[in-house]
């Protein structure tokens, strides 16, 4: 039987939530199209994540374990996914859209001579291929796309779907990674993590993001304190990562990370369309801005108008009270 294969990306010892979002939606698509649903895990200890795949509806789990996957490198990941696609005979390979998959999607499609729909907000599997919807033109409009190739790759923006549980008794197939390290022409020298990054920004249930209105270290510390009260992560708009106040890895938006937390605080962020593109899938959005006409209020569930320093000071105090 033909199948949908989902690549479950892992990070820091767990399967990324965005991977499970893709798997949960792929389960529905597989059921309605009469396809089997398989997953592939590529990690230095891939077997650790088999149970997670089983919990979310996978009928077959391919694992590819190798120490090369301890850190992201494009060449081995491409080889692993190429191997998994061939092994599984999939007609659709779906994966979460993240920096690691953006790095390999085009090359993988070229090697497999497949169709490819990148960074979709929605996808459906039809008899003849895959239809998708993706934001384009600085995320101002949605583009409807289709590929009817024999094999279609699709990457899905985080927060596009909910995570469902569907316990299965999946068959596990451990593939021997077939890769010649002589092909590894690129060398990873170093990974510079952003300072104080406790919670993975793209996966955090709560994100507190600062923008141009946050003028100094004092404002930044209040953002960090509010984030830590919610066990959340700190984000930023491009203006303050460029100025150096916030590390580059915290940038949210079209050219940064796409986040979709349960709760998003936009603090001193005016709401340029490029920023909105990275956070508009958030469930509850709180905007704090002194300009009552800032575009961010059009997206906010709750808008607070005023001096962010005063508001944050009180908010931190009240949240502490409510939590104690």
């Amino acid at each position: 039987m033909s199948s949908i294969l989902v690549y479950l990306a892992t990070s820091g010892g767990s399967v990324k939530r965005s991977s499970l979002e893709v798997l949960s939606h792929a389960k529905k698509e597989a059921d309605s199209a009469g396809l089997s649903l398989n997953t592939v895990i590529v990690d230095d200890s891939a077997a650790d994540f088999v149970d997670v795949a089983k919990k979310h509806g996978a009928q077959k789990v391919y694992t590819i374990s190798n120490s090369l996957f301890e850190n992201h490198l494009n060449t081995p990941l491409i080889a692993a996914l190429e191997q998994a696609v061939k092994e599984s005979g999939a007609r659709v390979l779906a994966m979460p859209s993240m920096e690691a998959t953006k790095d390999i999607l085009g090359a993988l499609a070229a090697k497999l001579d497949s169709g490819v729909l990148p960074d979709v907000a929605e996808f459906s599997v039809t008899d003849s291929g895959v239809d998708g919807v993706r934001p384009v033109m600085a995320a101002k409009v949605h583009q409807k796309v289709r590929s009817t190739a024999d094999l279609v790759l699709v990457s899905v923006r985080s927060g596009s779907y909910d995570v469902d549980e569907n316990e299965t008794d999946a068959e596990v197939s451990n593939l021997t990674f077939d890769f010649d390290e002589a092909n590894l022409k690129a060398t990873l020298k170093e990974i510079v993590s952003s300072s104080g990054e406790g919670v993975d920004l793209s996966e955090a249930p709560v994100v507190v993001a600062g923008g141009r209105g946050v003028k100094d270290e004092e404002g930044k510390q209040m953002i960090e304190e509010l984030a830590s009260l919610f066990n959340g992560a700190v984000g930023a708009s491009r203006a303050v990562t460029e100025s150096g106040l916030f590390p580059a890895t915290t940038q949210i938006g079209q050219t940064g990370k796409v986040v979709s937390p349960q709760l998003y605080f936009a603090v001193g962020i005016s709401g340029a369309i490029q920023h909105i593109a990275g956070m508009s899938n958030s469930k509850t959005i709180v905007a704090i801005n002194k300009d009552p006409d800032a575009p961010i209020f059009e997206y906010a569930t709750y808008g607070l108008v005023g001096d962010l320093y005063k508001i944050l000071t009180m908010l931190i105090e009240e949240v502490k009270k409510a939590k104690s």
Partner: peptide, 18 residues
Amino acid sequence: KTEVLGYEELPEREPGEK
């Protein structure tokens, strides 16, 4: 291998409270 079928407006977000 891919085609653009057309374009549509973004889905509207429910208005919030200021």
